[in-house]
Amino acid sequence: MINSEDIEVVKVGMADFNIVKNPGMITTLGLGSCVAVVLYDTKLKIAGMAHVMLPSSKAIKNNNNRAKFADTAISDLLSMMENEGMRRQNLIAKIAGGSQMFDFDSADDVFSVGRKNIQACKEILAEIRISIIAEDTGENYGRTVEFYTADGSFKIKSVGKPEKII
């Protein structure tokens, strides 16, 4: 495991995406019902991360911010990575987040957005034929996630829980 102090760190905010090259690390802090989607080129060791807030740009009129929605954010991130010379067949995905922070009835539309976000990300990744090799999703707590390009490890930190590497 590489120490985050010695390498380039790229921070991805809410409704945002970016990429980082080996040996850098890409991170997003305090994920709740949003989902972090990491695309990783296993040959070039370059990673991209999108912090997705809502499942679909098609369901909403005000959809100018493409980084907010699973469909447009993943598609834009993929284009950005392909422009950097990455090839789709070398990409794998890891996803995290999509929790339900408050324990209202999960059938409730408003509060099941975490689950819908996860589902949307999975469907889109399946469509573009990128396989998800690891995930840490759902539950009812927040996550800070760090993806290390050097070895492709995805570190998940939550309050009061041991660190996980997936």
Binding site: G30, V113, Y141
Partner: peptide, 20 residues
Amino acid sequence: KLAFDMAGAILSVPAILFGK
């Protein structure tokens, strides 16, 4: 309903609702 967690995670709930 009450939740204790990282600010980002708690605020993702209203942010998502408002984000629509």
